[in-house]
Amino acid sequence: MHVLEMRDVSRKYSFKRYFWQRKKVIEAVKGVTLSIEQGTCLGLVGESGCGKTTLGKIAAGIEKPDQGEILLMGSSMLSSPRSQRLLMRKELQMVFQDCTGSVNPRHTAGKVIGEPIRNFLKLNKDEEEGMVEKLLETVGLNKEDRHKYPGQFSGGQLQRVCIARALAVKPMLIVLDEPLSSLDVSVQAQILNLLADLKKEYGLSYLFISHDIEAVYYLSDALAVMYLGNVVEYIADISMFEALCHPYAEKLLSSVLPADPGKIKNMEVKNDENEKPGTGPGGCSYARRCARASARCLDTAPGLKEVSEKHYVACHHY
């Protein structure tokens, strides 16, 4: 069963600074179809500006797509009546990249974690307090920490508070938008372990957005690679990691530096950063940087097609 299904989802942003200027349209997400199996984690990797955060916000229900359909447990999110939508919101929670910015600096940890509880569950004060205490302990903090203000926590602790808030109403899916990038290396590992434990314990599903491919590998069961608003490669099983074959995915993988001097890469010249001019609007979005781009790549965009079982690539070469 799919927890969340996104069908052909698009989101455009238009900018107009002055009224005489023409509207500038940026397509952050272009017709993405992805689904997340219940109890699994879908990893989403890509460079900054590729639309992965926008897609995460759409999945969490903060942004509305311009086009497409979102199904939560098989029922449509966008066309459901208001009362039902509110119930659906409870099932989708999110953990943000910048943990300091994502909590109100004037609220205590207890108030931060209690916010979704107050909104979605009708509990009395004692029940709520007990729940907050239990949540704090679940994420590895102390009960007494609920009286502290965000400024009194370290980054890692604050991210735990944010995870507790997302966990509070027992959602089906948590969108994790770069939850590690603002943390120290040793703390990143703690949070990764915590996320893995919570997933197992509560049968949670994650949409894990990150640029850290090693962390994604650790936590995910499926993987999607995004490039300029498109999903260019998708594997339904992370064990097929070695089979990733889209030129961009390959480049991404080859850029990962192993923490082992025995495996030092001799940095051969791969000067493909320089963009080649002359792609039509219809071409493959990666063609300008792709070493293997052919004439066909420049005029028609490849669709996502199944190259082998559970493995989809959007590239003319496969």
Binding site: L192, Y217, A259
Partner: peptide, 15 residues
């Protein structure tokens, strides 16, 4: 060194 997930699914040995 141990807390880095170097393409494993094994539980991380954290500090």
């Amino acid at each position: 060194m141990k807390s880095r997930p170097a393409f494993t699914k094994d539980r991380l040995n954290v500090l």
